[in-house]
Nucleic acid binder design. Structure first.
Lengths: 142, 142
DNA sequence: GTAATTGCAAATACTTTGCCACGTA
DNA sequence: TACGTGGCAAAGTATTTGCAATTAC
């Protein structure tokens, strides 16, 4: 809940208005703490009752512009969205059969390389995405 | 050229027929040596003149089933396809402005973690995707 | 009051499939 | 000949936009 309030304050500071849709979206994202598709989000809890999918889409777009949300590829046809929280980086383990997504808590081994790339290439705003794909134990059984 | 022949032989061994479309597609993929979208591929060289987009799509599908091609997310709306060559793994550096994609030649720092995940989680067929995103020097200038 | 935000519906983008003709083995 | 493959056109899925009505500030 503290996280939700925090995010809301940040969004307000970034110039977004405090609307029901915004609150519901931030709640949904912060409760689930994993990348979610637009379809998932807009059928989740209060968002389903109160908001159109287009609204959720535009909110995600704005939050993404403000650097509060990131859009991920993740292999599926649909895009995934996840909260971007300063100081927190997550890599994911994804089952290619059932589509389950879990965060990996091991320290990310890529920062060193990222730093080298930043310096050698002159890219700005550098960040990375790392995903592991495979077949999870319960899908293997079947 | 050796690569092209190699791939063709492999595809034949996997049960695909030798058709002009297959040859053109393998040429295109092996010449460019980077992930390409369906749209790019089907408007590339001989493929443009000779093949329908649906054909290219189905070829990519078959090659993907046979483990010769991998489909990548890469952030854009369109899917990317890349050759999967045993013993070769590539990570990418992608400009979020102009969409350019280049392979990173530094050794991939993830294998160790991948091994740990394989052992701890019991995932099968594990592989990973690592992409760096940022704004390339020439886009920064503008 | 003013400008941002929303809902609805329509447009777009990309992918995927059906069906029959065709080419490879 | 038989079956994988190809072309064309249509359907499917996900995203994005236009516009008038509404709401936050």
């Amino acid at each position: 809940m503290a996280l939700h309030d925090d995010l809301l304050a940040k969004a307000r500071a970034a110039g977004l208005r405090r609307t029901k849709a915004l609150e519901a979206l931030l709640s949904c994202l912060s409760e689930h703490n994993r990348p979610m598709t637009l379809a998932e989000l807009s059928s989740c809890g209060h968002l389903a009752e109160q908001c159109d999918k287009a609204t959720v889409f535009r909110l995600l777009q704005r939050l993404s512009d403000k650097g509060m949300v990131r859009r991920l590829g993740l292999h599926e046809r649909a895009a995934y969205f996840t909260l971007l929280i300063p100081g927190i980086h997550r890599d994911y383990l994804i089952c290619t059969e059932c589509g389950s997504i879990e965060a990996i808590d091991a320290p990310c081994p890529v920062h060193q390389l990222e730093e080298e790339i930043r310096q050698e290439t002159g890219f700005k705003n550098l960040y990375h995405e790392l995903e592991f794909f495979g077949i999870c134990p319960s899908c293997v059984k079947e």
